[in-house]
Amino acid sequence: MIEQLIDPGDGSGTFQPIISDRTFEFLSNGTVKLNGNMCFIGNTVNPESFGTYEFIDDPRADVQFEGTIYPDDCEFSEATISFNLTLDGRLVIWYFCIEGCAEKYEKIN
């Protein structure tokens, strides 16, 4: 994770640089792994969380996100996380919250 956005509720929030070892790993079998709690925005790297992901591939869909992550281990079963891939190859994870809550990741090899 390289940046984090937590909006105060008025739309004025911007992504801010952050130093973190938090990483998402998307596997070809449709599973995703995070070395932190996938249920909430944060900077912690323990414990590991797992889930599944899917891309939104319906060209008729009027959506602002490219895909959805479904965490396996959240206390609330309806928890979902949306994501986008930016033009510069970064991953933006959007958590459900009243204010804007997001994390930005860069690809590592």
Rank of each mutant, 00 (worst) to 15 (best):
I6S: 06
I6N: 09
I6A: 07
D7R: 10
D7Q: 10
D7N: 10
P8K: 07
P8T: 12
D10S: 06
D10P: 04
G11S: 08
G11R: 14
G11P: 06
S12T: 15
G13Q: 03
F15N: 06
F15C: 03
F15W: 08
F15S: 04
Q16G: 02
Q16E: 12
Q16D: 06
P17D: 11
P17I: 09
I19G: 08
S20A: 08
S20R: 11
S20H: 03
D21V: 07
D21K: 13
D21A: 13
D21E: 12
R22P: 01
T23N: 11
T23K: 14
T23A: 12
F24T: 02
F24H: 02
F24R: 04
E25K: 12
E25D: 09
E25H: 11
E25Q: 11
F26C: 01
F26D: 03
F26M: 05
S28E: 13
S28K: 15
S28H: 08
N29T: 13
N29W: 03
G30P: 04
G30F: 02
G30I: 07
T31S: 11
T31I: 07
T31Y: 02
V32R: 03
K33N: 13
K33V: 13
K33D: 02
L34S: 06
L34N: 04
L34K: 04
L34A: 02
N35D: 03
N35H: 09
N35S: 03
G36T: 06
G36D: 02
G36L: 05
G36W: 03
N37A: 04
N37L: 05
M38K: 04
M38I: 14
C39Q: 04
C39R: 09
C39P: 00
F40K: 07
I41Y: 00
I41E: 00
G42M: 01
G42D: 01
T44R: 14
T44C: 02
V45P: 00
V45G: 01
N46E: 14
N46K: 14
P47N: 10
E48Q: 10
E48G: 06
F50A: 08
F50G: 00
F50R: 15
F50P: 00
G51L: 06
G51M: 10
G51K: 10
G51C: 09
Y53H: 03
Y53N: 05
E54I: 12
E54M: 05
F55A: 07
I56N: 13
I56R: 11
I56F: 03
D57C: 08
D57P: 00
D57F: 01
D58L: 06
D58Y: 01
D58H: 01
P59R: 09
P59Y: 05
P59S: 09
R60P: 00
R60K: 15
R60D: 14
A61S: 14
A61I: 10
D62W: 02
D62F: 07
D62H: 14
V63R: 12
Q64E: 13
Q64D: 13
F65H: 12
F65P: 00
F65V: 10
E66R: 09
E66A: 10
